[in-house]
């Protein structure tokens, strides 16, 4: 056995140990346990993103415990779970947004197709152009609607001519379903739009760079039901051309928009399966308890 193998064994042992500790914790509190291995089918053939044994630490606190899952091409994956379960943290690993937090440390292997996301040689700028992100609260820049959408293409030099840029902006706004509402006032500030419009503007801004994957961190949590419906509609449309991972609080939303669903609990990935299966025949008690509303 060489050193690397020994390390692996050691790490596995530590991993198991941690689960046992957590189990004991859970047994007393909820009378439920976290499975040693994720239940269901977390892996797919020929995935767009492949995550294996991902651990995330904030300083000394571990937020994510050995999560492994795949995200397939052009599919919508929903990450659900009670608040504080680490689903947003996990999402932010996928385009290295956690780099902006000093105390955050990520372990494990994360791949975008064949590219190791945490390869020190990899360029974050390039990665984030391929893996875009939409945030919880709509955060348009205090600039005009046009400049908001054109921001990404401009910094990445995606358009050589003004007409190219105009085209990118129009296409992105159309895809985001915002074009008809704002085409007459592209010069007015993006911050003047309604909450739902702002979030669609942020989505347009993200897809203007033509990313391969779009990460959405509870994109509807700050919106009213009508705006939420529009965004969900949009997500379904976008899934034709993009791979989407969406963190959501709402099980209904997950059921409506996603093909597959992953259930996180206290930083562990408990169960992952087809959305239908997760919601109709959950295999793990924790998942079932969550879905039936026993906690959350």
């Amino acid at each position: 056995m060489d050193i690397a193998e020994k390390m692996n064994v050691f790490q596995d042992a530590v991993q198991v140990d941690r689960r046992v500790v957590a189990q004991e914790h859970m047994m007393t509190e909820e009378n439920l346990y976290i499975p040693e291995k994720t239940v269901g089918a977390p892996f797919v053939d020929d995935p767009k993103m492949r995550m294996r044994d991902v651990n995330v630490f904030y300083d000394t606190d571990q937020a994510i415990h050995g999560v492994s899952l795949d995200i397939g091409k052009n599919e919508v994956v929903a990450l659900i779970g009670p608040s504080g379960c680490g689903k947003s943290t996990f999402l932010r690993c996928m385009n290295r947004m956690n780099d902006t937090i000093d105390i955050c440390r990520v372990e494990g292997s994360l791949h975008l197709e064949n590219q190791d996301i945490y390869d020190p040689k990899l360029d974050v700028v390039e990665l984030r152009a391929r893996v875009g992100m939409v945030f919880q609260k709509p955060n348009p820049f205090p600039k005009s609607i046009y400049d908001n959408v054109a921001y990404g293409p401009r910094i990445h030099g995606l358009a050589n001519r003004k007409t190219d840029l105009d085209e990118i902006v129009e296409n992105s706004l159309r895809k985001a379903g915002l074009w008809d509402e704002v085409k007459d006032r592209l010069d007015s500030p993006g911050t003047g739009l309604s909450g739902g419009q702002q979030q669609r503007l942020c989505i347009a801004r993200t897809i203007a760079v033509s990313p391969e994957v779009v990460l959405m961190d509870e994109p509807c949590s700050a919106l009213d039901p009508i705006a939420t419906a529009k965004i969900e509609e949009l997500i379904r449309e976008l899934s034709e051309s993009y791979t989407i991972a969406i963190v959501t609080h709402s099980m209904q939303q997950a059921a409506r928009v996603s093909q597959r669903t992953a259930y996180f609990h206290l930083g562990w990935l408990v169960e992952m399966n087809d959305t239908d299966t997760v919601f109709t025949k959950p295999q793990h008690e924790l998942t079932e308890s969550y879905i039936t509303g026993r906690f959350g």
Partner: peptide
């Protein structure tokens, strides 16, 4: 706000 920073960095800006 931090959200501004995140939005820009999330789009791949340096």
């Amino acid at each position: 706000p931090r959200a501004m920073r995140d939005a820009s960095l999330g789009l791949g800006a340096t």
